[in-house]
Design a protein around this nucleic acid. Structure first.
Lengths: 172, 172
DNA sequence: CCTGCTTGTGCGTTATAACGCACAATGTTA
DNA sequence: TAACATTGTGCGTTATAACGCACAAGCAGG
């Protein structure tokens, strides 16, 4: 079974449990049959896009909640970590912004930057692990973490699919 | 037809055209039959999750690329625009970072900020329209736009589902 | 011009999603 | 205790996803 169906069954199960809904109640709310809901949760069936829409709407969830972190094909072997500039360094503002993608299970540790350099990371589609002050810290999607980058630091993707995050780097 | 299938057909069509792939070539690369690809693009069939995974993998796209912007249930009526701080204003660095969500079709126009204020927007899950220098400019997901915010400016979500974007605001 | 190849569509067949219903197991209430 | 309601699962049926194949249309090359 593909990672998408695997993740979907977990999310669906958790969402239903969190609401305290029976399969019958969930069927009422979503318009998807009780039997089908059970099949999806047990991984016995792969629902269609139309059914996914019904599920998201009925559970009042974002479709993206159903996606496995990182969302698709793994990066090519040669792309364990990719870096794309969103805003190039501007001396007047003193920062640059990068969009970084880290392959599943990939860990990247950086040497210290120049004194005074500060970084801010914001994971976009999953949980990022960040090494700073000699401790690995977990940062949830959408949350921000600021840390001094003039000491050893690192990033790690603990998930099973690529993880994207924004990195805002300030230079003194 | 639901918004998800509507969006999917467009993305698929565009991705194939961009690569210059025929249906036959796309079938080879994805493992999904030529006939099925045609049906999806013409909106005649709603693919399963397993098929979505194949498509994303074969086209080397993120699953989230297939999602209609904002992904599902509309914001409640009382939430036409929501603003959540990612990084609070820091005098030493002179900026704050906000995560803003704009409801479908919603347009928000701001009065000018103080002289020298600069904003940077990065749409996360769809196309954002930005008003600056009296002109509306389109910003694609993942791309960044920097503009002076000490003049009238605005944001608009032209899509059919909620749009999230990061807004980085610098104060002189 | 003709021939061969490519392309997207439609059709019939196969596989499976999605369903309604029955049922065993469990829980609740009188 | 018995009766009733609830819950999740399995089964058979229906609807449709997904497929292989044929074909008309278009294109390229001799």
């Amino acid at each position: 079974m593909d990672p998408f169906n695997l993740h979907l069954r977990q999310v669906l199960k958790a969402a239903r449990a969190q609401r305290g809904w029976s399969l019958g109640k969930a069927a009422q709310e979503t318009g998807v049959s009780k039997a089908m809901l059970g099949q999806i949760e047990r991984g016995e069936s792969s629902p269609t896009v139309a059914t996914l829409w019904k599920l998201a709407t009925g559970f009042a969830l974002a479709l993206s909640d159903f996606l496995p972190p990182g969302g698709s094909a793994p990066l090519a072997d040669s792309e364990q970590m990719s870096v794309v500039p969103v805003f190039a360094f501007d001396p007047a503002l003193g920062f640059e912004m990068l969009a970084i993608t880290l392959a599943p299970g990939e860990r990247h540790v950086s040497e210290p930057h120049a004194t005074g350099v500060v970084e801010h990371v914001v994971p976009l589609n999953g949980t990022l692990e960040v090494l700073h002050q000699d401790v690995w810290e977990t940062v949830a999607a959408g949350a921000g973490l600021r840390f001094k980058a003039d000491a050893p630091h690192g990033y790690a993707n603990p998930g099973v699919v690529p993880l994207c995050f924004h990195n805002l780097v300030f230079y003194p």
